[in-house]
């Protein structure tokens, strides 16, 4: 938004500059409203994160404990083998919703928990300890998917906020002051020119009077 101060000191230019200040001011006011709205949105998502995160992390640590148990009882190799044999086709449905032009993810998770049969690790592997570990990781995954939606939304809103803030700052600290500076400059020049005119007229008048 660089602008040189090289302006012609005319009434026409003054009018144009005043219109530009008006536009810049309008842009500033609106973007400021947008920033406020983004702050509201940001804190709403933050609240959800604060609710979702502890639950998800707690479930994850429960799941890890169940897995350690499984390693100990079923065996590390056997558990790893089961994790390779199980059906691994869990799907998440991701669409978008829009907050003031920011695309934020909207995630839909179907039923994540499965029964031993659907999990599909061969029946020779069937063990309640293994099932327990799987179930707990399925639950953790469901909660983490939701958390991912909220965290990504928060990042997206924060990025838009930063962008908007940069624009607001450019208007507030660069463009608007420069335009106002240019207006002041023209007004001073116009004033000067008027004074010069005035004194020239006075001189002419004096000359005419002398001649009489």
């Amino acid at each position: 938004m660089a602008m040189a101060l090289a302006v012609a000191p005319t009434r026409m230019e003054l009018l144009k500059l005043r219109q530009r200040v008006g536009l810049a001011q309008k842009g500033y006011d609106l973007l400021k409203e947008k920033m406020d709205a983004l702050v509201i949105e940001f804190f709403e998502v933050l609240k959800r994160i604060q609710e979702a995160r502890p639950k998800a992390l707690e479930q994850l640590s429960v799941a890890h404990r169940a897995l350690s148990m499984c390693f100990a009882i079923v065996g590390t190799l056997e558990t790893k083998q089961a994790s390779k044999e199980t059906k691994r086709e869990l799907q998440v449905d991701v669409s978008t919703r829009h907050i003031m032009g920011i695309a934020v993810p909207a995630v839909e998770v179907g039923e994540v928990e499965r029964n031993a049969l659907i999990r599909g690790y061969g029946l020779h592997m069937t063990s309640s300890v293994l099932d327990e570990a799987s179930k707990k990781f399925e639950r953790a995954l469901k909660l983490l998917i939701e958390l991912a939606e909220f965290e990504e939304s928060a990042f997206a809103i924060a990025r838009e906020f930063e962008k908007t803030k940069r624009r607001v700052n450019a208007l507030e600290y660069i463009l608007i002051p420069r335009l106002k500076e240019a207006i002041k400059f023209i007004m001073m020049r116009l004033d000067e020119m008027e004074r010069e005119n005035f004194s020239r007229l006075k001189r002419i008048k004096a000359m005419l009077e002398e001649r009489e």
Partner: peptide, 14 residues
């Protein structure tokens, strides 16, 4: 790590 990926593979991660 090994534990993390084993756990989530059991949960259906592709």
């Amino acid at each position: 790590d090994q534990d993390t990926i084993t756990g989530f593979a059991l949960a259906g991660a592709t």
